Computed example of a mutant assay.
Amino acid sequence: MASRPQRLLRGDDSSLNASFLELFFDLAFVLALSQLAGHLLHDLTLVGALRTALLLTGVWWIWVTTTWFADWYDPASPSVRWLLIGAALGSLLAGVAIPHALDGRGLLFAGAYVAVHIARGVVTVFALRGHPRQRRALRILCWFSVSAVPWLAGGFLPAWRVPLWLAALAIDLTGPRLGWPTPRMGRTGRQELHLAGEHFAERYQQIMIIALGELVLVAGLSYAGTQLDPPQTAAFLLVFATAVLIGLLYVTPAGQRLGPAIEHADPTRLGVITGYLHLVMIAGLVVTAVGAELSIAHPTKTGDTTAVVVVLGGPMLFLAGRILFSLAIHRRLSWARVVALLVLAGAAAVVRLPLLAVTGVATGVVLLVVVLDHAGVLSYRRGSGA
């Protein structure tokens, strides 16, 4: 009969498909991404963008670490199930706090973030006592306990909130890249950090669908609130086309190679780096959603530099993350995609075009990159690289 620690850990015969509760956990990000888009829309300044990025990174790191947790531990275990439910609740509370997280609800945001990580660490350390994997859980708990101090201090000290939370995120994001080194225990070895590539690739695709769903939802709601005039209809169709193209761009071809790449790579490199790069791509989708709302609501508006930067900046940010994603998977840089990114950057200077035309430029560039990626799939299958 298996011991309690062995029942907690994911076995070799465990299904690599996402469990029901993992998908339920993802639903919390529907609210979070919607709140983040609204947060940025109401403060379209550089400072507002940086503040939104700070909150997005915090929410995203709950998702990443919970996905690692579900990859290492058996989702059929009662303890794992309750921790996934708790993580979903914590993510929802963080989403509720987002609009005022840097004002009056900072403690709610920080408390939800800290509670998810500390509860997970305490339960796994206790459940794994006597098992070699307890040291991994203890190292992770130590790092999150350290970062909990600036997180909670920032919740109590509004004037110092941003620098304290930046310091906390720096601790949380660098820990896995270093293997969570801890006094007297050293750092976690590669074998302890192994990730099931098939499971992880599926989870990334699922969260990307959630992010794309937010873009489609914003487009639909924005269009529903208009008079359905031809310019507004055209803007809506262009945004929908952009969402479809971004989805195709994600899965072809690097997205298809993600599972095997993670399975055979150093987890402290690719396993962690893909978490960073997906953050960039999802940030691009949040900005694209804000640009979609601006474009659909005011398709004929010209001369609005901020709106032009947002409409083009979302696809630019996604493409930048996507280029680096391909580089991480294939160890090769696609200069054609870099040129497409520069075209978008150059188009941002054309502020005299109506937002409908600017949206058309963004959609056209993404379409070009999708065509190039499709050609890459064909050449990869012939053995000449992707």
Score class of each variant (00 low, 15 high):
H278F: 07
T242I: 15
L248I: 11
G247D: 08
I282F: 09
A320E: 05
T305K: 14
Q256T: 08
E293H: 04
T268M: 05
V309W: 14
I273M: 13
A297F: 05
V251L: 13
T306I: 13
L324V: 14
L285M: 10
I323M: 12
V239D: 00
A254Q: 02
I282H: 07
V308F: 10
G314T: 13
I323S: 12
F325S: 13
L238W: 12
A254L: 04
A307C: 00
E293C: 02
P260K: 14
S295Q: 07
V244E: 00
D266E: 12
L324T: 15
I273L: 11
V309I: 11
P253S: 15
L285A: 07
T288K: 05
A289F: 08
G291P: 02
I246G: 04
F318Q: 09
H298A: 08
T305Q: 14
T305C: 04
T302Y: 10
L324S: 11
G275D: 00
I273H: 05
D304G: 09
R257D: 03
A283V: 11
G259I: 03
I282Y: 08
G314Q: 09
A243C: 12
L324N: 06
S326N: 15
I262G: 00
A265F: 02
V239N: 02
V239W: 02
V239H: 08
A265I: 10
V308I: 00
A265R: 04
T300K: 06
S295I: 03
F240W: 10
T306K: 06
G247H: 07
Y276D: 10
S295F: 03
G247P: 06
T268F: 00
L245F: 14
T300R: 09
G303L: 03
I262Y: 01
Y276Q: 10
T274C: 10
L277T: 01
Y250N: 10
G275Y: 04
V287P: 01
T252L: 08
T274F: 07
T252C: 04
I323L: 14
A254W: 06
P260G: 14
L249M: 13
T305S: 13
I262S: 00
P267M: 05
P267E: 06
A292E: 04
M316L: 13
A283N: 01
L317T: 15
L277N: 05
L312R: 04
I246P: 00
L285I: 06
Y276T: 07
H298R: 01
A241E: 14
T268P: 01
V290W: 02
E263M: 10
H278L: 09
L249D: 12
Q256I: 03
M316K: 11
A243H: 05
V244A: 10
I296L: 05
L317G: 00
P315A: 15
L258A: 02
G321W: 09
G313I: 15
H264Q: 14
A265T: 02
E293A: 02
V272I: 09
Y250L: 13
I282K: 12
E293T: 05
I273K: 09
T268W: 01
L248M: 14
A261I: 11
H278V: 02
T306R: 12
P260E: 13
T242G: 01
P260F: 15
V287I: 11
P260I: 04
L249Y: 04
